[in-house]
Design a protein around this nucleic acid. Structure first.
Lengths: 349, 349
DNA sequence: ACGCCGTGGTGGAACGTTCCAGGCATCTAA
DNA sequence: TTAGATGCCTGGAACGTTCCACCACGGCGT
C-alpha cells in the first residue's frame, strides 16, 4: 500500500497529495517547489522526497491561471520560410529554452490577402496566449494600436528599431548607405533600390533611407523604388517571372532590401540572360548563410545574427525579471559590408 | 456613467460582469460564448449585446485551466534553419491559425551537446505547455518513452511514418530507391549514401533502406554510409570543410539524405575543385525551393509540402474534434524524381 | 518577567472558467 | 387532470495553484 498507489488512478498528483505525504501544508510545498526561503532544510528535504515518490509535477495551467502569466515568449517573424527568420528563430528558441521559456512563432506575413493591419490581428492572436514577452523580428502597421494591444507585456524589437520598446539592431539606414556607397565607389550611378514587400516593413524603410542618403551624398538622384512581387518573398522567389527587365533597363546595379530578394534577382537574371556582375551588380542585406555559397556569392550587408538573438533574449529576460528597468534601451550594432562576386564596376559605356 | 466604466479599472471584464449587465447567470453567458444551445434567441442577443458593451474577452488562461487543455499545436521540427522545416513550419502555422490554433515550435536538433534522448527532453518541455496535439516533422529516440510522455495527446507524424500515431508522408524508402535507381540508370555503380546526422532520424533511416534495396536490386553492394559532420546541418553546411574528399575517392555519385546535405556537398565540391556532375553526381531529397534555383539545380526527390502540411493538420484536427477515430491512419504520398543538372552519366573510365 | 522580533509554518481566499445536478415553467400524452 | 418530457436557465462545486494575513515558538534585550 504505497502512497504512490493510493491516489485516484489517472489523476496527476497535486500539491495536496505531496503535502499529505510529507505531513506539511500545501503552502509549504508550494514554497519548496518555487524555491522560496522560509522553509527549514529538514522540511524541504521531506517535501522533496514526497515529490520524488509521487512523481509530482506542478500543473502549468493552474500556475498560469493564478499568476495570469505564462513562460511563453512570443516571436513575430516575417516569414519562417525566409532563412533570415529561420536562423534567428532557431537561435531565439534555443536561448529561450535554456532560460526555461518556450517560444511561440507567428508569421506576420500573410497569405497574400492581408490588409495593412494584418500584423495587428496576428499580434492579437498571439497575445491571446498571454506570452510573458514578445520579440518582433519584423514589424509594420500602426504602432499605437499594437502598443495598446500589448498592454504592458514587455517587448523587444530585433533587427529593427522602434522607439517605444527595447531594441537591438544594426542601423538599417547605415547598412543601406554602406551597400549603396559600395556600388557608388565601384562607379555605378544608375542604382536601383528594390524591395519585395508591398507593405513596407520598418527595417526596410530605413534601408531605403540609407540608399537615398548615399545617392544624394554622391550628388545622384535616387531612382524610384522598385516594388517587385505582390508583397511576399514566397511569391517572388518561387515565381520569379514578373517583368523586372523593363524596370531595370536603365540601371547597372540594384540594392535589394534583403538577401532573399537579391537571390531572386540573381535567379531572374540567370533566367533572362542578364550576367551578374557584368551586366548588373547586385547587393543584398542580411548575409544569410546562403549568400556565402560559392554558387551564389552575394555581396551583402552582414547582420550579426548571434548577437542580435542573444541581446534580444537577454533584454527581454531582464525586463521580465525586473533587472532591467527604465526607458527603452536601444542596442545598436554595426553593419558590415561583405564583398563577394555579385558586384563589380559597371561595363564601360 | 456607462457600464463600461463601472468596472474596476485595469481589470478585464469577466463572465460575471457580463452576466450582471445582461441580467442572466454566468452559466448562460458561458453557454452563449461557447455557442451551446439551450439558450433562447432573445437571451442570446441580450448577452451578446452586453459582451459588446463591456468588450468582454474570455480569459484563455482560466479556460485552459479548467478544461486542462489548450489550443496550442506543438510542432517538433528538426531545425528551423533548414528550409525544409521552415517551409513546412510556415504552412502548418498558417493552417493552424485558420482553425483557431496557435503553433509552438521546438527544435529537436540540439546545440550539439545533446544525447540520444535529447528529443525526449524536448518533447517533455513542449508537453509541459499542454498542447492539444503534436506534429512531428522529425523524430528519433525511443518510441515507448515518448509515447508515454505524450499521455494521450493526439499526434501526427508528417514527412515520416511511425506506426503508433497517424502519419502523412511520402514513402521515404521508395524515395531513396527512386534516387538511387536514377543514378544506377545513368550507369553509376559506386554510389554512396551520405547523411549529415549522427543521430539517425526515422525518415533518413528509411531513405537509407531504399538506397540499399536499389543497390542490391541492381546486384551492387551498398557502400557503408557516410556520416558527414557532427550531427547538425548547421555545423556541416556552415563549416563545410571536413575531409570528405577521402571518403568520396571511390565514388562517382552520392545520394544525400536531404537537400541541405546535398547543397553542402555541392559547396564542398565547388571549393575543392570537384566538378558536378562531371566528376560527381549528387542527388538530394525534399526538393526545397532552393534546389530549383538555376545556380543550384539539384536533382532530388520531391515531397509535396503542401499536401503534407494540409493533411497533417486535417488529421490532427480530426482527432481533436472526434471526427476521426480508430487506429492510426497512414496517408502515403508518392515521391517524385526531379532531374536537374547535378546528375549525369559517370565519366568513362 | 515581559514585550518584541525573526523564523518556520499554516489555512483561507481568490483567480475565471466549465461542468453538472437541479428548478421551474410549459407542453404532450394518457 | 396529471405524470412525464422538454426547453431554458440557475447556482454550487471544482480545477490546482499563488498570495497573504496570521500564528506559534524560541531567543533576546531591558
Amino acid at each position: 500500500m504505497k502512497a504512490t498507489q493510493s491516489r485516484a488512478p489517472g489523476r496527476n498528483p497535486t500539491i495536496f497529495d505531496v503535502a499529505a505525504l510529507a505531513g506539511v501544508s500545501k503552502s509549504t510545498v508550494s514554497n519548496v517547489v518555487r524555491g522560496n526561503d522560509g522553509v527549514s532544510a529538514a522540511t524541504r528535504a521531506r517535501v522533496e522526497r514526497a515529490i520524488e515518490i509521487l512523481g509530482y509535477r506542478p500543473n502549468v495551467l493552474a500556475r498560469q491561471f493564478v499568476s495570469q502569466r505564462t513562460t511563453i515568449l512570443g516571436v513575430l517573424v516575417g516569414d519562417l520560410d525566409n532563412p533570415f527568420y529561420g536562423d534567428l528563430a532557431k537561435r531565439l528558441e534555443r536561448l529561450a529554452f535554456r532560460s526555461g521559456y518556450t517560444t511561440m512563432f507567428c508569421n506576420i506575413e500573410g497569405a497574400g490577402d492581408e490588409e495593412a493591419d494584418f500584423a495587428a490581428s496576428r499580434v492579437e492572436a498571439l497575445l491571446e496566449q498571454r506570452p510573458a514577452g514578445v520579440v518582433f523580428l519584423a514589424f509594420f502597421g500602426r504602432s499605437p494600436d499594437i502598443a495598446a494591444a500589448l498592454g504592458g507585456v514587455p517587448v523587444v524589437f530585433a533587427g529593427l528599431r522602434e522607439d517605444w520598446g527595447d531594441s537591438v539592431a544594426v542601423s538599417n539606414s547605415a547598412g543601406g548607405k554602406l551597400a549603396t556607397e559600395h556600388l557608388l565607389d565601384l562607379g555605378h550611378r544608375r542604382i536601383a533600390y528594390l524591395t519585395t514587400h508591398s507593405l513596407e516593413r520598418r527595417a526596410h524603410v530605413a534601408r531605403h533611407r540609407g540608399y537615398q542618403a548615399a545617392m544624394r551624398g554622391a550628388g545622384v538622384d535616387p531612382a524610384p523604388p522598385i516594388h517587385w512581387g505582390p508583397g511576399s518573398e514566397e511569391a517572388t522567389v518561387k515565381g520569379a517571372d514578373l517583368s523586372l527587365l523593363d524596370q531595370l533597363r536603365d540601371t547597372t546595379a540594384v540594392f535589394c532590401s534583403n538577401d532573399i530578394g537579391a537571390i531572386a534577382v540573381l535567379e531572374y537574371a540567370d533566367r533572362h540572360g542578364l550576367r551578374v556582375p557584368e551586366d548588373l551588380s547586385v547587393v543584398g542585406f542580411d548575409d544569410v548563410h546562403l549568400a556565402s555559397l560559392a554558387r551564389i556569392s552575394l555581396t551583402t550587408i552582414r547582420q550579426p545574427f548571434d548577437d542580435i538573438a542573444r541581446i534580444a533574449v537577454d533584454t527581454l529576460l531582464g525586463r521580465l525579471s525586473g533587472t532591467l528597468e527604465g526607458p527603452p534601451r536601444h542596442t545598436q550594432l554595426a553593419p558590415a559590408l561583405v564583398v563577394r562576386s555579385s558586384t563589380a564596376a559597371p561595363a564601360a559605356t
